[in-house]
Structure formats: C-alpha cells, structure tokens
Design a protein around this nucleic acid. Structure first.
Lengths: 254, 254
DNA sequence: GAGTGGTCTAGACCACCAG
DNA sequence: TGGTGGTCTAGACCACTCC
C-alpha cells in the first residue's frame, strides 16, 4: 500500500544463477532481474540495493553486476543516478521497431498471422531496386508480393526484392514461414536496417486487396536490410491499413 | 617516439586522447574512431587492428578499448566477429527517431524551421490526456497548438499537453524555442518516450492549416515523454503532411 | 595452431548527491 | 561525511574462426 523506497520482501533471494550454464553470467542476472520487474517483485519506482551488495549477494563480481544492470538501463527498465541509486522506471518496453517480421509482431500481440502469396517472380531490377540492393540495373532479382493477414483479416500488402543467389523462395515456403525466417535459415544474419515510414492513400488496387475504400489512409514503410558486413539483403516496400495497424516504439535516451 | 607510419594509411596515428580531460577515455576514443570512419580514413569494409594492439597503441587498457568499440557496435558503425575481427559497416546512421524536437530534425536536414503558435491555454484534461499524464481527470494542464514550418512551408500541426507546475510556456517563447528546449531549460530531463505512428486522412480543418486537400494522406504520431523517474512530462498528438515529411531510422540488431 | 573477440575477476580511485 | 554509481586498470581463461 505504501509507496516504499525500498522493497519489503527480499527479491534478490529469488534470483538464482547457474555457473555451469553456457549463458553468460551477466545475461542470466539481467534476465532474472527483468523477470522480477515484470512480475512486480520489483515494482515501478522501487529502489534496488547498491550494486556492490547485489554483486556480493549473487556471488558475482562488481563489473559483471554492473553489466547486468546496464543492460536493463539501456532498455529503459532501470534508471541510475550517481550518489542516489538505481530505480525501476517501468516494467514493459515496446521494443524499438525491432528487426522482426510482421509475423513475430502479430504473434507477440496474440493475433494469428497469415500470409497469402500474391506472386513470386524473378524480375529485372529497376533503378530504385538496383540502387537499394547495390546491384547493376536490370540484374535479375526475386520479387515477392504477399498479402498479410491477422486473424484472417487483411493487414498489409508487402513487396520485397532479394538478390537471387541469396535464398530460394517459393509460394508454399512463404505461406508457412516469414521471409526473415527463410533468410535466417539460409545462414544470413540480418544486422542493420534502414527504414522510412510515411503515409499515403489507397489506390483502387490496394483498396481491393486490403478491403478498404479507395482513398483510405495507409501507413507505408520501406526498408533495406543489411547483413553482418553491410551487404544489402532485402529491399521492401509495404503498405498497412492505418485503421488496423500502427507502429509502437519506446525510445530511451542514452 | 613512434616510427613513421609503415603502412600507407595508419589511421590510429591520427587518434589523440587527453588524459586530463574530464571526458571519459572510452568516449574520447569512441568519438575519435567515429570521426575516422566518417572522414573515410577508416572506410566501409575496412578491418580494424585487433583490440589488444589498439589498446596498446592508444595507451589504454583493454577493457577501456573494448568499451569504445562496443559503443560504436551498438550504434551500427562497427561489426565484430569472434575469431575474425572488427570491421566498419557504414559511416552514417539515422538516429533512431531520436528524442529530439522537429526543430532539431529539420536543422540537421538543412531546412529552416519555423513555428506559428495557434493557441496556448490551460484546459481541463480529458480522459485520454489525464491517462497519458497520469493525472486525475479534469486536472488543469497546458495545451499548446502549433503549426510547424520548414522553409516557410507548413509541415505539421502539433498538439501538446503538459502538467502546469512543470514549466512556463507562452506564445512568444514557443515561437523562439522548441518545446523540448523549454522543458530542458526548466531542469527536466526527458529520458524515455512511448510513440505510436499511424496514418490518417486530412479533415477540412487540418487541410486548411497545412495547405493540403481534404482527404490528403497525413502521418500521425502520438508521444508520451517521461523523465528520469518515469513521471509523464508531456503528451502530444501530431499530424504531418505525408507529401513533405517521413520518419527515417536505422535499426541495429544487438 | 594461431589469432580473434567474449567473459569474468579483484581492486583502485574519482565524482556526485544527500544528510 | 558517508554512500552511491562512474571510470579505469591488469590479468586470466574461454570460445570461435580460419588455415
């Protein structure tokens, strides 16, 4: 009932770490702390014990303890102030428009994702696509068009271009798996993406696919994704029904 | 006394750090490295010397060197692979929809920002505003409406709500300074923000203000900003002309 | 096997904040 | 003045990649 400065029970007693695990200690500790925060054992506003004592209690060194805490600070769950201490700011964070597929996004929101493949072709890259993928114009690339559904309802039309040598795609594969899943399965790690978010109004064709009226508001997103070494992997232009979808994110000042 | 550069390009020779400076060593090193990357002394794709040698060359310890590198890895400029090395991925990053005002965004893009204050009032918070600011309904709050311009052309209509005790606002102040600037000047540090981005079509009133047609595509953004300890500082709902403005960001997988 | 980054430790000193 | 987080160090061992 009372907004306590320190937490009554001893949440740290609930933390257990496994030194034989291959999972790094700092990550184990961070994960456990995050769990305590999400379970409200460390409620918003509560103060953590100082890092030296926590390190001691958990049997890790201070640098390791600090790294765990910093991990959660970077994600906006904790705030630290020199001379004061460490406090819980919030329990939940919208991840920053993460490098996930819409598929994962929907599942996390408890909605059932679906895909209807409109077309899978190899086409000659036009100037825009070639520039995005850093290929010569007219190079043959995959072109995939999909209608994405949530709980059976149209959500977005997605158009993606990929270098041909990268990965094999086909309609049956794409009905079952997200595009990013297929890319990862091909051993490619997507590391960086440039995104631009805008708005437009629906053309007749878009409206028909999405079940909207012509002129309805659509959210647009174009994205170029790059691998480990900065090589373009995928370029896509997508439109979402603004009436059914929006982007949420949490920003943290570092 | 170092021997003169044996390799044609020895970028590390260009790095100098000042141990008397109050700026942390790791940050000095990171900043210098970033400068080398942006100046193309360390071009995209080039490999860095291993961290132990770099630490040695710069006269810092390995943990400090690592911290500098990690700083740039987190921002997507560098990529590291165990057993392989550290490489430059890219020279420029669109900051992740940063916690900046539109004012700063436009200036960075080389466009001249302007503001026309439409209204500055104290109003009773409705349910939505009260919930966002975590106040009781009908609490009196500031309500600021502004038309934002770039190079004299309308770009966005912004509507912001702030707790009254927080900061003094007035039309003349807001014509000169960004809202976030005023908040910072009041000694409040904005640390976290939740944003939702969507799309809509222009009402007649919006269209008139923005110089668009009724039904034109608009990009919408609503944001709640929080301070250090998670207290809501500001709630705003904004609409941007989709024909003149979009959000760009770079995502980095961590 | 050689070389790279990834993790972890123990300890030191400093800067800031609150009483 | 005492307590907090912030920085920095020296060294150890491990895991991964490539030859």
């Amino acid at each position: 009932m009372e907004p306590s400065a320190t937490t009554p029970a001893d949440p740290l007693a609930l933390v257990s770490i496994d030194r034989r695990s291959p999972v790094p200690l700092y990550f184990q500790v961070a994960t456990e702390l995050q769990r305590l925060i999400e379970d409200d054992a460390l409620p918003t506003g509560s103060r953590l014990t100082n890092e030296i004592e926590m390190a001691d209690r958990l049997g890790v060194s201070r640098p390791t303890m600090r790294r765990s805490i910093q991990y959660l600070v970077d994600r906006g769950l904790l705030v630290r102030k020199r001379g004061v201490g460490t406090q819980v700011v919030r329990a939940q964070v919208n991840r920053t428009l993460e490098l996930t597929s819409l598929h994962d996004d929907l599942e996390r929101a408890g909605r059932k994702p679906g895909t209807r493949v409109i077309s899978v072709d190899q086409v000659a890259a036009d100037a825009v696509v070639a520039a995005a993928l850093e290929l010569a114009e007219s190079t043959v690339v995959w072109h995939v068009r999909r209608l994405r559904l949530a709980d059976g309802e149209p959500i977005a039309v997605m158009s993606n271009y990929l270098p041909v040598p990268l990965v094999e795609v086909s309609a049956p594969l794409l009905e079952e798996h997200g595009l990013y899943e297929l890319i990862r399965a091909a051993g490619v790690r997507i590391r960086i993406a440039d995104q631009t978010i805008g708005a437009t109004t629906a053309t007749t064709g878009q409206a028909r696919l999405l079940g909207e009226r012509r002129g309805a508001a659509l959210l647009t997103m174009s994205r170029t994704a790059y691998d480990d070494v900065g090589k373009p992997i995928e370029y896509g232009t997508h439109v979402y029904r603004a009436s059914r979808y929006s982007f949420s994110l949490t920003l943290v000042e570092r």
